[in-house]
Computed example of a mutant assay.
Amino acid sequence: MPRTNRPAILLRAGRLPVVVAAALAAAAAATVLTGCADFGYQENICGNGEYPALSVGGTGSACFSDKEEPSAGYTRYPAGKVPQQVDDKWDVYWRTHTLDKDGNIVAAPDAG
């Protein structure tokens, strides 16, 4: 009995494109199901034309237009310590730290 070369049989039978399409579909599904984490996507803290501000004495934050100052109860982050993307170094840091009414960095009272 002669040996057959399976890929050649698939190609002759017209099945190779179906197999390739199925493999590509499986790869696409795996990418979607993993949340695209392998692509390094990071969500910005604020949108274009906005900056983040920290709530005084707490870990909350809000975004304000570049054209306005933060509202009462919020202050700008210290220079060089402004979070840019969700879960970046400074976003994580400010979850357990805050600024007091005098602008000093202190441990956040609600940090667990």
Rank of each mutant, 00 (worst) to 15 (best):
P2F: 09
R3G: 00
R3D: 14
R3Q: 13
T4S: 14
N5I: 12
N5V: 11
N5H: 15
N5A: 03
N5W: 11
R6C: 05
P7H: 06
P7K: 08
A8I: 06
A8Q: 15
A8H: 13
A8M: 06
A8P: 01
A8C: 04
A8F: 12
A8N: 15
I9P: 03
L11W: 07
R12M: 12
R12T: 10
R12H: 06
A13H: 03
R15H: 02
R15V: 05
R15S: 05
L16Y: 11
L16D: 07
P17R: 08
V20I: 14
V20R: 07
A21E: 00
A21D: 02
A22K: 05
A22C: 04
A22E: 01
A25F: 14
A25P: 05
A26V: 14
A26W: 10
A26K: 05
A26C: 13
A27I: 15
A29E: 02
A29V: 12
A30S: 13
T31S: 07
T31M: 02
V32S: 07
L33R: 07
L33K: 09
L33M: 14
L33F: 12
T34R: 07
T34H: 10
T34C: 06
G35I: 07
C36E: 02
A37M: 03
A37C: 00
F39E: 06
G40V: 01
G40D: 02
G40L: 00
G40E: 04
Y41P: 01
Y41V: 12
Y41G: 05
Q42K: 12
Q42A: 10
E43L: 10
E43F: 06
N44E: 02
N44H: 08
N44G: 05
I45S: 00
I45Y: 05
I45K: 04
C46I: 05
